[in-house]
Amino acid sequence: MDIGTSLVKYILFIFNIIVSVIGISVIVYGVIIMKSIELIKVNGEVGFPPSGLLPIVLIFMGSIVLFISFLGCCGAISESICMTMSYAVFMLILLTLQLTLIVLRFTNKDNFDLAMGDVIEKAWEVDRGRGGVFDPIQKSLHCCGHYSAADYLMSAQTLPESCCDGACMNPLNIFGGCRAKFVDTMSVNTDRTKYVVIGLIGVEFIGFIFACCLAKNVRNNRAKSWAENEAESGSESGTELRNLP
């Protein structure tokens, strides 16, 4: 194996170790966000609120990156063309999906914010502040009502405890509306996620290039070795024929 192939091999291995660390960091980041989100209980069922979707996506994405980088490490060390090309194909698919998500996020920000607002609107329409699904959403997001606490007052309802940080008699303790709070929360989190994904795309693209280079070099070296062996075998056969009486 030539020096160039050895260099690419170890660069790809070290690179995938770094990618593995990044994948683990994305998983940890998702877990931290998930822990900051309070569970909600609806009809006796405990689960995550709508804002819990983002950390789940991050954990899932980090797990995929970790798996692919492990495949790349194994392919680099073993110099397996099959594993290295599989790694390159998976990386290309992942790059395409991530780039598509980023483009959609950039070009459809208003639609995204509208969709997040619709989540709260539908929850309010179903519950109307009667202590069902909307109460745990208020506890999780620290908000009150669809647009504001006035939603309860217009329905001739008293403010629930989830609407206030302390006694609801004090207007300063009342939280703002859930729709705006949820849209802002998701917008901030997705902006952070966007930059994390952009960084991953850049790193993964470098890994894709190194994987293709390594697979090409290993294939060329093996073809060269095979040709040399065939030439040596042919030379030995010719010598044996000449030596026959």
Rank of each mutant, 00 (worst) to 15 (best):
I120Q: 00
S235G: 11
I59L: 03
D127H: 05
G199S: 10
A150E: 15
G207F: 01
I206E: 04
V31N: 01
E236T: 07
L7F: 13
G75V: 00
F205G: 14
R105E: 06
L94Y: 03
V218L: 06
G52D: 03
N189V: 08
K181F: 10
C212L: 13
S225T: 05
M116W: 02
D191K: 09
L159E: 06
V197T: 08
I102A: 10
M85Y: 08
G129L: 06
C163E: 03
I174M: 10
I24N: 03
E230R: 11
M85F: 05
Y195S: 08
V203I: 13
I22C: 06
C213W: 01
A115L: 11
N16A: 15
G30Q: 06
S235K: 09
L101N: 09
F208T: 08
F205K: 11
V188H: 11
N173W: 01
K224A: 11
V65Q: 01
F60Y: 07
V42W: 03
G132V: 11
S225F: 08
A149T: 00
F134I: 05
M1G: 12
N16S: 14
L97S: 13
V42E: 02
E161P: 07
S155W: 14
E161D: 14
G199N: 09
I37P: 00
R219N: 09
L54V: 12
I77L: 14
V19I: 15
A76L: 03
L141F: 09
F90I: 04
Y87P: 00
W124T: 02
